[in-house]
Design a protein around this nucleic acid. Structure first.
Lengths: 348, 348
DNA sequence: TACGGCAATGTAAGCGCTTACACTATTGGA
DNA sequence: TCCAATAGTGTAAGCGCTTACATTGCCGTA
């Protein structure tokens, strides 16, 4: 069961090329410290032998990996995909690699993944959102691993972060909703426990209600895991509990798409009978019919900025600067004025 | 610029617990070879110090990583997400980890990623499709790294693979299309160069044409990269070049969704004016309106089987068994009979 | 009582690499 | 002509872990 790898080592290459291991190593890492002639000969040998350096050994000796780890809640859906793509591209252009892990929105899994990435020698870590045990931040500090948070930005937090204000963004969408005349609002949120983004978004809706003289207590909220099916089920539950709802605001586009689909099944027209809004502006939002009114998040910009900042942190150019990006409303057709329906508005 | 990590090492733990490094290592890896009392004391020390083993060092000493690498063409879209998720779950239950990389459908990038994963000590590799330089297989063989291919299955290939017959699957969909009366078929395919799945799918359509007495030469094919926008553009081009097309078969669902959207913009009704089909049956396929008729691929099953087989290969239980899975037609509303339109069919 | 056997632990040799330091030519300036 | 500076290369000490082998102490048995 012992793996019998006989891949060539630095030593093998050195012998074959008739130089010392130091020289081979230099050819690979600091080519201009080596005579052209030697370099050519060594590189040819490297190619001929199909030599690949052993990452573990290299990391151990050099005490760096040029690898940055990122832990996202989910790979299966595309919320983070675009941002991560940009993150990776930027990282690569700076000479770093990306190691991704996903936590399935589970704090215990995230913790495990953090240890795994540290164990693998990640030079720094990108994490999503603020909310996690303090012990984790302590651990990371002790290990000397810089961390940057993304997809969230809150004044006065200790941890450096690149993101936007989820609460304010959702509040501004809710204001728009209320402006249009909606009074009876239902909410389908992701599970807020352990997920500050989700919690902040719901809070943003309540803010808007208060600002407009509505009682936030009246807000009906259903929490459910990130999944189209769940969005559909939640919509059903919400509408059955209160058929007078004129708008259902969803914590993310995926839930909103589920709601949209369910509304169709229930024979409700959107936005005539009921309006639906999302959050994130993933590609799907522009594809469904009607197009989803949502909050546009600057994923790519966030990914790019996070990458440059994190590299700066690793290279001690910065010791962690936060940046707030702006999310904007993306108005499409799924949000309308209440009471457009022939069957009579709820407030007649 | 030198990272001054002072994270505790095995040695530190050993000293603190008053035992040798060997004992600490055993506590971590073979707990039942250690006296209960010692074990408890050591584990407590490990916890207290926040010790995390250094993966590189461990890999080097143990000559195994319990990590399996997978290189997929893209993370951004969800074709592979579901399969990969299942792959990972199964891997985890067998005590292995997954390391993912994406190649952006570029052979050179894939090659680089393969080296990177080998360099990181992957015990085995999962690759998509057959088509790549022989040199890569040779390299992997020399390195002693088992490989399994997925998402494709072809008789008589040397490499073990878990997948389905793309050609036969698409052929069966095309047969259905022709059965319904379609004669003028347009195709939007992914780039076939370096992508055997894409090429096989187009070939499958030609097979069906031959079988039904149509001339495969007449098939109009546009190749374009995997992206909704591109699908839309290709649809536009196809329909402008030949407005008489009654059906556009797409190489995957993403392109099909693009085509669907474009058809709407062009004022063409689906399937009355033109039918559209996809391939893969990603979630999106059931969400768009009309629902996409497509080929259902057993992603999860494929991921699961690939994981068990790959682990068996690493553990020398198997030296590579192939398995063919069945893809099936998923009939929805985007495929209809030609000439349903009031505006007159092409063959009036 | 003596001793084989076993359980628990320790000792130390690497695993494949980087890099500080040492060494040898070579070069150019005084 | 001599010497300092410099370029090119080699030597060897680890980096943090696993594991074969050696050692120790204990038990049960003859």
């Amino acid at each position: 069961m012992q793996q019998e790898r006989n891949s060539p080592t630095l030593d093998d290459v050195a012998k074959a090329a008739g130089v010392s291991t130091a020289t081979v190593s230099r050819c690979l890492n600091l080519p201009d410290r080596v005579a052209k002639k030697t370099l050519d000969r060594v590189m040819k040998t490297v190619d001929d032998m199909g030599y690949t350096p052993n990452f573990g050994a290299r990391a151990m000796a050099a005490r760096r990996t040029f690898t940055i780890g990122a832990i996202i809640p989910t790979m299966e859906n595309s919320i983070f995909a675009r941002g991560l793509q940009a993150f990776q591209e930027e990282l690569r252009s700076r000479g770093y690699n990306l190691l991704v892990a996903s936590s399935s929105y589970r704090p215990d899994v995230e913790k495990e993944q953090i240890r795994a990435l540290v164990s693998r020698g990640a030079d720094a870590l990108l994490l999503i959102g603020y909310e996690r045990e303090q012990a984790i931040y302590d651990y990371l500090e002790r290990q000397g691993v810089p961390v940057l948070l993304a997809w969230a930005f809150l004044e006065g937090q200790v941890q450096p972060s690149i993101g936007f204000n989820n609460r304010a963004a959702m509040c501004s969408l809710a204001n728009r909703v209320i402006e249009l005349g909606h009074r009876r609002i239902g909410v389908i949120s992701a599970i807020t426990k352990g997920n500050d983004r989700a919690a902040e978004r719901v809070a943003g809706i309540r803010d808007a209600m208060s600002q407009n003289g509505l009682n936030p207590e009246n807000l009906k909220v259903i929490e459910t895991p990130y999944d189209i099916q769940n969005g559909a089920a939640a919509f059903d539950e919400l509408m059955k509990a209160d058929p007078g709802l004129t708008v259902v605001m969803c914590g993310n586009d995926v839930l909103a798409v589920g709601a949209l689909r369910k509304s169709k099944e229930m024979g409700l027209r959107v936005p005539e009978d009921v309006s639906i809004t999302g959050f994130d502006d993933i590609e799907l939002a522009s594809i469904v019919t009607p197009g989803l009114t949502t909050v546009h998040v600057p994923h790519r910009e966030m990914g790019r900025k996070a990458a440059t900042e994190l590299v700066d942190m690793v290279e001690k150019i910065s010791n962690g600067r936060s940046a707030e990006l702006q999310a904007s409303l993306q108005i499409r057709d799924s949000l309308g004025v209440p009471g457009m329906s022939d069957t009579g508005g709820p407030d007649r």
